[in-house]
């Protein structure tokens, strides 16, 4: 995992350029386009889906995110896909998950980068075409060992 040889030696502080954030209007337009494409004309329903993300994230480089379909899959109804969007990231689409009905449930956790404080959106497309949505506004702070 860690590159130990690098850690054995000193290194010059490299210059990193912060990821440029994009203008709010464009960001929102891009997010809306993503959601529209994902929803396929349906109106997303604000129910049945949980988006668990810290309201104040201490480490913007690794914000834990859980997306969970509240109900288990039933014979007729399962979840086909999750879409996760961070609308003020330089690339708003963060990731997608596709589920087989054999999973029996949809509950995933990952860690994402957030360029700044913003609204994070999770969407689910159900096998019957229904679209579920959940939005959470996240404030980015910094913590680490010494937050």
């Amino acid at each position: 995992m860690m590159n130990l040889s690098r850690r054995d030696t000193l290194r010059l502080g490299g210059v990193a350029i912060a990821a440029l954030t994009i203008a709010p209007a464009r960001a929102r337009a891009e997010t809306e386009a993503l959601i529209k494409e994902f929803a396929g004309g349906k109106t997303p329903k604000n129910a049945g889906l949980t988006l668990d993300i810290p309201l104040a994230a201490e480490n913007a480089n690794a914000v834990p995110v859980t997306i969970r379909l509240d109900d288990r899959f039933s014979g007729a109804r399962s979840c086909e896909e999750f879409l996760l969007v961070a609308e003020r990231n330089p690339i708003p689409e963060a990731c997608r998950f596709k589920f087989s009905p054999a999973m029996g449930m949809a509950d995933v956790t990952t860690r994402i980068r957030l360029a700044e404080s913003q609204t994070v959106v999770a969407l689910a497309r159900m096998s019957d075409g229904e679209i579920l949505v959940r939005r959470v506004s996240v404030t980015v702070t910094v913590g680490g060992c010494n937050g």
Binding site: M1, G14, V15, A16, A18, A62, G144
Partner: peptide
């Protein structure tokens, strides 16, 4: 385990990256 890396940003400040294992 946890790992932290540091970088100098263009404005001269130090930025921290934290990776939890």
């Amino acid at each position: 385990s946890v790992q932290f890396d540091y970088e100098i940003m263009p404005d001269g400040t130090i930025s921290q990256k934290q990776i939890d294992i």
